[in-house]
Design a binder for these strands. Structure first.
Ligand SMILES: [Mn+2]
Ligand SMILES: [Mn+2]
Ligand SMILES: [Zn+2]
Ligand SMILES: [Zn+2]
Lengths: 140, 140
DNA sequence: ATGCAATATTAGACATGATCCAAATGCGCG
DNA sequence: CGCGCATTTGGATCATGTCTAATATTGCAT
């Protein structure tokens, strides 16, 4: 499941993005890229320290910021209380289960916008975020 | 500009939504509904106390929560650090200037999405939030 | 009007996510 | 080995937002 090849893939990935390798960064990368889930900083900290060793909160935040800068991650802002970190950097959108807080990817091609609105002058689109909030169909 | 008719309009609006009137609630409603801007709790607190009297932080949060429950407002989650309160409760989407943090409404009709993705079984759409992140076209 | 119970407001304590800091550690290389 | 620089770290600090328990106001019956 967790062979040396996985580990090397993560190492390559970090290096290709200009991130110098450290033990902690590899641990964090493993947590994020092995399951490709959307996780909060707290969840990442817990998982990293559950599997292996002691990585500090400060290092988790430092590393997430670094990974963001290097384009290894993106943020998803859907919950007012915490940021989710998304290991999928391909353009895509999200289903957000408001009861569980769980995020699911929607491929960009699965949604087509017709008639993008006209932008104010001199403004350019940096990105489009679509969140479809869902909940279980109410049982009485 | 700020005649008694405005004030009465706000009062009517609150009462039609089942909100019992208080001086503080009317002040907060005036700040929100007079300019229809997207404001954070902090900004609302500052504006309320700039124009008139002393309304406490607790009351601002209490009132915003009440207005949300009563359908007078909605939240907009685009900034990891603070919630914006939106006095426009009609279905619509947003332009988000990432450099200034300023939000602008896009009428729901201005965007059409084709091919909504298929939802997991027993799940129903609660809402769709579209945020178009923009920035000034600026070569430094 | 007066009294009374329910509702609303408030100051300040508290919770939480996230950032900052200054010290300690680790690493690459001469 | 030892030096210089990047990285890590605990703990302090900050910012939004919530809670509490006391006070003030309101609506209403008498
Ligand atoms: Mn925050
Ligand atoms: Mn918060
Ligand atoms: Zn995603
Ligand atoms: Zn809006």
């Amino acid at each position: 499941m967790d062979g040396p090849s996985d580990h090397d893939d993560f190492a390559d990935r970090l290096q290709r993005h200009g991130v110098t390798l450290t033990h902690q960064r590899l641990e964090i990368a493993a947590v994020l890229f092995r399951t490709m889930e959307h996780l909060s900083a707290d969840q990442i900290l817990a998982r990293v320290n559950a599997r292996n060793a002691q990585v500090s909160k400060a290092t988790v935040y430092n590393t997430l910021k670094l990974f963001l800068e290097k384009g290894l991650l993106r943020e998803v802002i859907v919950d007012p209380d915490r940021v989710f970190y998304d290991p999928n950097v391909a353009p895509h959108h999200h289903l957000y289960d408001v009861t569980t807080g769980h995020l699911t990817d929607i491929p960009a091609e699965a949604i087509t916008l017709a008639r993008l609105p006209q932008l104010p002058d001199g403004m350019v689109v940096e990105g489009v975020d679509i969140v479809i909030r869902t909940r279980p169909l109410n049982p009485p």
